[in-house]
Nucleic acid binder design. Structure first.
Length: 580
RNA sequence: GCUGCCGUAGCUCAGUGGUAGAGCACUCCCUUGGUAAGGGAGAGGUCGAAAGUUCAAUCCUUUCCGGCAGCACCA
């Protein structure tokens, strides 16, 4: 299962901790341009900010930064003796910084950078003078951050900012942020009446008719692809006995995040946080033969995870969600072929949804894991071999594998250039054994199958959020919840409009009729705002010669078409052509 | 979960220690209008919840709930 967050975009929101912090407390220091500060969690910048009225000082700090930039002070590097540095920073009350220096490994230089009367610890390197920062920067926001990223440590205030080589680039970036806000799926979800989230079910989605139509369209498409790819769909129970989760290792690793339900008897049940144990039970319900392998079990599996409240974010991170999950039980020999087929299927599906730019990452063993190193060695080797054989390039994501096996992560780039991890293919030599899955091999002996976990869209909820933002709510025709609105110009054309709508419906198009008592300009505006791809406008003229005026979303022109031709054409346009 | 901020009509937001307002949306009426807002009227709120301070709380205090941003987490 992929992590369900993962906005890689934040790479561009640069930690300004040190820079802005210095501007508040003391003269000024330095920075590189653009500000790719490697010391993101600079303690000095954070410490005193804690008592700072959050946003109100932003302008003052910025103004002060600009002053320092204009002074164009020279920046010089100094190497200090460790103890002297600690004493110095302790002496000026920089407790955190002194602590930090104490932990710099022996043999590494303690480098300080000086500008004017200000000196600070930094690995550097720095540009020659403060003027190099330029003025194309902006402080963005302030938020708490744990000292050294550990929740056990006190939280300090971190200032975020961003900097570019020119004002033009900065403006462009700021515009992109605004664009992201306009596309925010939470906002579009409301505006397009797709879903809502409420206090009555924190972290779960109330799907409205239009949102659920979109959901079902995606699900139907996926079913078609899975059937064609040799998967068999199953459905497992939502509540499963505690003992199963103990056997799978989830109880130990994720108990805090599981919803527990009590039953009438002494049994403790858990609402399933994932589908694999259920699929293993289906596999193991009878003795399996090697002839049945590879056995591909797919499920639109409903999962619940008690995510920390602060992690919840629209549809991107919810407590109740549906995974497009599957588990492939196979022999060791079949692993490579199956993994390759998975990769191809995933990429083809992403193309159909409009994602051409996909990055594959290989995530290897995490610190907390089950299984021996020998088994991990084999799993990592086999999975890597599969991607390579498929002729795909990948990058490494060390230590990010699942606790039971390494995984391939599929990151999609959206229209705004942001990356989202959706699919994963995970190779698992551990779970089948832990849960006692076996098959009878050609040799008549019992063997433990290998299991491939894979999700393509990840969570349906999150994928719909990504799709919504990718298309800014203007879904391609095959996905649009309402594909066509038939709008009448006068009430005289209302009967004909109803007939047009019926024809569209009969052709399988998702159509709405607007015969309301409004001007056509008003209707055009309404349905344009609702981002309906096609409007068929009919007035007296069209009613008389049985035609329609076809208007596309955002278009200025209309096309006059015979009714039958328009319907046939739209039907064809709305059909999904699978990528190979 | 942590830190900070926020919570007033369906939505976006004004506002005040003496129980509240706008625009849009909604309902009704007039209007039958040819491609992004025709006109009028009406209805709609226990001001997130509970305690406290006060003669009096939507406003001040505390706690809780929810949201937002970041952190941490993400099988």
């Amino acid at each position: 299962m992929p992590p369900r967050s993962g906005r890689v975009w934040r790479k561009r929101r640069l930690p300004f901790g040190s820079t802005a912090g210095r501007a508040i407390s003391r003269p000024w220091s330095t920075t590189t341009r653009p500000l790719r500060s490697s010391v993101g969690k600079c303690p000095r910048g954070l410490r005193f900010c804690a008592t700072m009225p959050p946003m109100s000082w932003r302008r003052k700090i910025e103004a002060r930064m600009r002053e320092i930039v204009r002074r164009d002070e020279k920046i010089t590097r100094e190497v200090w003796d460790r103890d002297a540095a600690i004493t110095f920073f302790d002496g000026i009350g920089e407790r955190y910084k002194a602590e930090y220096i104490g932990e710099i490994p022996e043999g590494e230089e303690i480098s300080l950078y000086r500008q004017g009367d200000f000196v600070d610890l930094c690995v550097g390197p720095h540009l020659p003078s403060t003027g190099y920062l330029g003025e194309a920067f902006k402080l963005m926001n302030v938020a708490g951050a744990y000292w050294r990223g550990d929740p056990k440590n006190p939280q300090l205030q971190r200032i975020y900012g961003t900097a570019f080589g020119s004002q033009k680039e900065l403006d462009q970036y700021l515009f992109q942020l605004e664009e992201a806000e306009r596309r925010d799926h939470r906002r579009l979800g409301r505006e397009l009446d797709l879903f809502h989230l409420g206090e009555e079910a924190v972290g779960s989605v109330f799907w409205h008719p239009k949102g659920w139509t979109l959901y079902r369209t995606i699900e139907a498409y996926m079913r078609g692809r899975l059937d064609a790819a040799g998967y068999q769909e199953v459905r497992g129970p939502l509540l499963l006995d505690r003992s199963l989760w103990e056997a799978s290792g989830h109880w130990e690793n994720f108990r805090e995040n599981m919803f527990i339900a009590e039953s009438r008897d002494e049994r403790v049940l858990a609402v399933k946080p994932m589908n694999c144990p259920g699929h293993v039970l289906i596999f193991s319900n009878r003795l399996r033969s090697y002839r049945e392998l590879p056995l591909r079990l797919a499920e639109f599996g409903s999962c619940h995870r008690n995510e920390p409240s602060g992690a919840l974010h629209g549809l991107m991170r919810v407590r109740g969600f549906i995974q497009d999950d599957a588990h492939i039980f196979c022999t060791e020999d079949q692993v490579t072929g199956e993994a390759i087929a998975c990769c191809k299927l995933l990429l083809s599906i992403y193309r159909d949804f409009g994602f051409e730019d996909v990055e594959i990452k290989f995530a290897d063993r995490p610190t907390v894991r089950v299984g021996s190193d020998a088994v991990w060695d084999r799993a990592e080797h086999d999975l890597k071999a599969a991607v390579e054989t498929a002729g795909l390039t990948y990058t490494l994501n060390p230590g990010e594998g699942a606790f039971y096996g390494p995984k391939l992560e599929f990151h999609l780039r959206d229209a705004l250039g942001r990356q989202w991890q959706c699919g994963t293919v995970q190779l698992d030599f551990n779970m089948p054994g832990r849960l006692g899955a076996v098959y009878v091999g050609e040799d008549g002996a019992r063997h433990t199958p290998v299991m491939l976990h894979r999700a393509i869209l990840g969570s349906m909820e999150r994928f719909i959020a990504i799709l919504t933002e990718h298309y800014a709510g203007r879904f391609p025709l095959w996905l649009a919840p309402v594909q066509v609105v038939v709008a009448s110009i006068t009430s005289e054309a209302a009967d004909y409009a109803a007939e047009v709508a019926r024809e569209c419906g009969a052709a399988g198009l998702r159509v709405e009729l607007d015969a309301s008592n409004e001007k056509i300009t008003y209707k055009v505006r309404e349905h344009s705002l609702a981002k309906v791809p096609i409007m068929l406008v009919v007035g007296r003229r069209e009613a008389a010669n049985r035609s329609v005026a076809l208007r596309r979303l955002g278009g200025k022109e209309q096309e006059a078409l015979a009714l039958g031709e328009a319907v046939a054409r739209l039907k064809e346009e709305a059909a999904v052509a699978w990528s190979s």
